[in-house]
């Protein structure tokens, strides 16, 4: 599935090189000359890997808990999206509060303390000690 997706992505990107207008298309100095070589190799290798995978039928290692992994995946993607909009501190508190139980910390006091103090310490350290401001939320300029 992954190898098929890689092959299709490579093919899609290769096709995209024909959809744009460049100043010099046919020479080695064309902007798409090098990417086309790379993408041709990409597709060829993906195809070989796909054939190998079909012949050997090897599976990836089993996942212990899809729920735990899925939650962390979603949390990580949302977290990296939210920092630019909501600042560093608030999304980090939320992420830590979700991540710690996923990794087995069940004590609410420990989760709460960690979720507030670690992002808080990072904000204090970078914003106020090193004067390297992290993104701030729309609610306050302090964090």
């Amino acid at each position: 599935m992954v190898l098929l997706a890689l092959f299709l992505v490579g093919g899609g990107l290769y096709a995209a090189t024909f959809g744009q207008n460049y100043s010099s298309v046919d020479t080695a100095q064309s902007p798409v000359f090098f990417p086309r070589i790379v993408l041709t190799l990409w597709m060829g290798l993906a195809l070989i890997a796909l054939v190998q995978a079909i012949r050997t039928q090897s599976d990836a290692a089993p996942v212990a808990s899809w729920l735990r992994l899925g939650l962390l995946l979603v949390a990580a993607v949302i977290y990296t999206n939210l920092i630019g909009r909501e600042g560093f501190f608030l999304p980090s508190v939320a992420f830590a509060a979700i991540s710690l139980p996923i990794f087995g910390i069940r004590n609410p006091v420990a989760v709460g303390l960690y979720a507030i103090t670690v992002p808080g310490a990072l904000v204090l350290f970078f914003n106020y000690l090193l004067s390297m401001p992290l993104p701030v939320s729309r609610f306050t300029h302090l964090f």
């Binding site: 990580a76 977290y79 990296t80 920092i83 560093f88 980090s92 992420f95 830590a96 991540s99 710690l100 996923i102 990794f103 087995g104 910390i105 960690y114 670690v118 992002p119 990072l122 970078f126 390297m132 992290l134 993104p135």
Partner: peptide
């Protein structure tokens, strides 16, 4: 030190590093 604390710290520090 529990793995949970380290894994969470890794994500937070990586976000800081990439942003800067």
């Amino acid at each position: 030190v529990r793995e949970a604390y380290m894994m969470t710290a890794i994500v937070l520090l990586c976000a800081v590093g990439v942003y800067f």
